[in-house]
Simulated scan of single mutants.
Amino acid sequence: MPLSEHEQRMLEQMERALYAEDPKFATALEGSGLRTYTRRRVYQAVAGFLVGIALLMTGMVLTQIWISVVGFLVMLGCAVLAVTGWRKAPKPGEQPAGAVPGAPGAPAARRQARQKRSMMDRIEQRWQKRRDEQGGH
């Protein structure tokens, strides 16, 4: 279900506030490093798929069945890698699965986690206040 214009504006405001308050955290939430790695893996799988097609066609032209079978298997394996890699890619704004905010041991990380929590609390309070105001109309 798409967001209404009002909800989109509110989301944009929250994103701007997040970037203004803690740009490092906001950038970390984008997960660009993992997305780049996954995207590269998908591109490699597509290139491998094209090599598989070339092997398949070469085997057919040379009437060597085993080359065609190898080409088909390469195509199949690369297609599976591309599809699984695409599904595992984090969406923009989503935190990577391996990232743990405020990892133990680092006082700065704990302090940053507290700041994140307080910022999220404020955002949730504002959201609730706006919902309550809208519900009264």
Rank of each mutant, 00 (worst) to 15 (best):
A109R: 03
K129R: 09
A45F: 13
M1D: 04
W86V: 06
E30R: 12
E94D: 08
A106P: 00
T36M: 11
G105A: 08
P101I: 06
M120A: 09
G52Q: 03
A109G: 01
A99P: 00
T58E: 00
P101R: 07
P104M: 10
M1A: 09
V51W: 04
E30I: 08
G136L: 10
S118H: 14
D121T: 08
V80N: 09
L3F: 13
L81Y: 08
L81V: 15
K24P: 01
Q44Y: 14
G105P: 05
P90I: 14
P107F: 02
Y37P: 00
E21T: 09
K88H: 12
Y19W: 15
Q64E: 09
E133M: 13
R40T: 09
A82W: 15
K24T: 01
Q125H: 13
K129A: 06
I65K: 05
A106F: 14
M120W: 07
I67V: 15
V51C: 05
A82T: 05
L11S: 07
Q44P: 01
R87H: 14
L81C: 07
L34C: 01
V42M: 11
K24V: 01
R126S: 03
F25Q: 02
M10V: 07
L34H: 02
L81P: 03
E133S: 11
R35G: 02
A47S: 05
Q8N: 13
M60W: 07
Q8G: 08
R35M: 12
A97F: 15
D121W: 14
A82Y: 14
T58C: 06
M75G: 08
S68R: 03
Y37Q: 03
A106H: 08
E5P: 02
D132Y: 14
G33C: 04
G48N: 08
A106Q: 04
G105R: 04
E7H: 15
L11I: 11
R114K: 11
A47L: 12
L3Q: 10
S68C: 11
L50R: 06
Q134M: 13
W127S: 06
D121L: 15
S68Q: 08
L56P: 00
A99G: 01
H6D: 05
Y37K: 03
A28Q: 03
R131W: 09
S4E: 09
L56W: 05
Q8R: 15
